[in-house]
Amino acid sequence: MSQPVHEFTIEPLDWKPYVKSVDVETATVEQLDALKITPSNKKISDYVLVLANEPETLKERTPLFNDIMYSEGGLSRGGREIGALAASFVNHCIYCASVHAARYIQLERRPEVVDEIYDRGLDANLPEFEQALFNFGVDLTAHPDNVGAYQFYHLREIGLDDLQIIDLIHAVAIFGWANRLMHTLGEPHRLD
């Protein structure tokens, strides 16, 4: 039996729920319908099977998440992953951070950015562009009631246009959602 992981790690992790996941064999028509629109080329994850307890919500959430992270144009996909990482570090979602650190490296081929975030956490000292994205993600996640002109002008300074800013806002916000599910409904384990 593997031990749960309580510290940030970049290694790939497994996730084990605290509550029961839906059994595909006995799932309702509505649950199967909600599960169908998740990537079907691989085994359905325990996380998605837990969320299938609430199929009406899952059915909207899956395409929303995909559109926020993968839509065409606007902020680069790597830029959105920095927003995801910032939120996951504030909210201490170890599993989310591991997945999206790997995705950032895969997209941008810049492991040093991720290494710095893992070394220094919220005090990471990053290149100007990534620093501004990361700081915005931290600020919006930790103090949504205190985001204003200061944050806005930092994003403008690195050259973001309105569409790129709105993409960053949604990438951070959807991890305010995802972290609150993944970190509270289960915990990461080292792969067996």
Binding site: V19, L140, D145, L168, V172, W177
Partner: peptide, 27 residues
């Protein structure tokens, strides 16, 4: 428990989206 977690997660998402859009609206 999943229902409650989903409600909490959604409302927090909406709070962040509104906060970010308000920043864009007012600057």
């Amino acid at each position: 428990i999943v229902t409650l977690a989903g409600l909490i997660a959604f409302v927090n998402y909406q709070v962040l989206v509104v906060a970010g859009l308000k920043m864009l609206r007012d600057n």
